[in-house]
Design a protein around this nucleic acid. Structure first.
Lengths: 186, 186
DNA sequence: GAGGGCATGTAAGCCGTTACATGATTTC
DNA sequence: GAAATCATGTAACGGCTTACATGCCCTC
């Protein structure tokens, strides 16, 4: 999965591993996070498969900075992946729900405490999402240059859609927690 | 994680691997699924650690049926896990969101088609959740006997809470998809 | 006797997590 | 000169997925 995220970003412009990590943390990481270790190894794998090329920037400094560029094969791979629609839904994996499921015999007060911790965290996440301006992402991808791709507007709309998902998700969780806490207090 | 799910169920009553698989599929599997291969190997690991014991039923047939029972150490392990509250939120991992994120350059019609497939699947899941009566789970766990644990009522409430989560989640996703489809059509 | 449900296992491989490890540049 | 940020890697491990493999029992 991460391979497609990397190809997806490199499809916009050449980037190094560190920049990819930053981009992911601020965008796709909210629904598919990755550690830098995995990013570097996956980039290596993509290069071995000829889907990206890399070059060390010798020009301006002695920093071992490696910039990755997508190849035509890489773009084809990305397009092929996108063209095959998902036919199942994503599986939820949420430890909190497992904990709640088996919390029947726990002290209600303890369960409520835990739910309140979660509530605070989700509240923070909601606020973080709402603070992200829609065009913020545009700025991240294109620091001080005009868009390298013709219509980043269509992309921007999709980015906003995933942000919208995050907001709806966090609101839903907050409502669920509030509802459950109230029930447990009664 | 699966270890705690297994301990959680075995904390109610002794079960074999197959029964655990069935129970998971119908309950916790909605937020933490598991393949039978992992269930059997994890049960073996739990036994090696003295958290469960097993015995082959020789009594009535030649079927190699192995029933697992939780030990006192197992109950302690489960209690210890439950008593330590989660301090982070679960990470979402949703391929659909990754796909949407990078779908800016795709044909809108194709994206809409894909979203409609997802809509149908989520609609079905929502209906499945709503069809599950709250006491259904009670029946699954205690087929034709009185509850082995004093108050399964408290547990039942928690099970219902996770089911409620599922319903809220599916509704949220449906609304998000409808909203996005409408936007893409405009 | 064919198919579906009951029942249990092994093994390879992939992906992701955690930890270890290093070093330059920039800012206070 | 200390701390934060930029920048890149390796390695061990654990958990999950996929595939392979087997065999009984019951119903049609």
């Amino acid at each position: 999965m991460l391979r497609f995220i990397l190809l997806g970003f490199l499809n916009y412009l050449p980037l190094n591993g560190y920049q990819l990590k930053m981009l992911i943390d601020q965008s796709t990481g909210h629904f598919w996070h990755a550690y830098h270790s995995q990013i570097y190894t996956t980039l290596q794998a993509l290069e071995d498969q000829g889907l990206v090329t890399s070059q060390t920037d010798e020009s301006d400094d002695r920093l071992k900075r490696r910039t990755y560029e997508i190849t035509e094969a890489g773009r084809a791979e990305l397009r092929a992946w996108l063209s095959k629609p998902m036919l199942e839904t994503a599986q939820i994996k949420d430890e909190l729900l497992v904990r709640v499921f088996f919390s029947g015999q726990r002290d209600h007060a303890d369960v409520i405490d835990e739910l309140r911790i979660q509530r605070r965290l989700h509240q923070q996440q909601l606020e973080a999402y709402m603070a992200i301006a829609a065009d913020h992402l545009l700025k991240v991808v294109t620091p001080e240059a005009p868009p390298p791709v013709a219509s980043l507007k269509a992309d921007s709309r999709m980015w906003t859609a995933t942000l919208d998902y995050g907001i709806r998700y966090e609101r839903m969780v907050l409502e669920w927690i509030d509802n459950l806490v109230n029930q447990l207090k009664a």
